[in-house]
């Protein structure tokens, strides 16, 4: 049964890393600024989930703090970028 769990953990890590790579590809491709911001959102969600899965695999709960920080920092960065696209200034 533990081999199944190891397989699932490895699969999840590979799939999430691949998802982060695809999101990074969309950031590079563009074509417009809103595409890049959207891909940034997907990138940080995938990275956060990857941290959680890695924490499960390594058996350390400390990566949760990192995941929480990524979630909050990603939210603030994408919102400010989207706000900038909307008006051209972040704080009115």
């Amino acid at each position: 049964m533990t081999t199944l769990l190891w397989f699932a953990l490895s699969y999840a890590q590979i799939a999430l890393a691949l998802a982060a790579c695809l999101a990074a590809l969309r950031i590079l491709l563009g074509p417009r600024a809103q595409d890049r911001v959207l891909a940034l959102e997907a990138l940080y969600v995938a990275t956060m989930l990857l941290f959680i899965v890695t924490g499960m695999r390594m058996g350390t709960p400390f990566l949760f703090e990192a995941a929480l920080v990524i979630a909050v920092a990603g939210f603030v960065s994408t919102v400010s970028a989207a706000k900038f696209l909307l008006r051209g200034e972040v704080i009115e």
């Binding site: 049964m1 533990t2 199944l4 769990l5 190891w6 397989f7 699932a8 953990l9 699969y11 999840a12 890590q13 799939a15 999430l16 691949l18 998802a19 982060a20 695809l22 999101a23 969309r26 959207l38 891909a39 997907a42 969600v45 995938a46 989930l49 899965v53 499960m56 695999r57 058996g59």
Partner: peptide, 30 residues
């Protein structure tokens, strides 16, 4: 994770597969 009994390892593995596949499909769609 070695010490985990099967009745908890099985749903954990299933949820992991489901969640990572969905995230990957979302990125693929992107």
């Amino acid at each position: 994770p070695e010490t985990m009994p099967w009745w908890i390892a099985l749903p954990v593995a299933a949820f992991l597969l489901l969640g990572s596949t969905l995230t990957l499909l979302g990125a693929l769609g992107l």
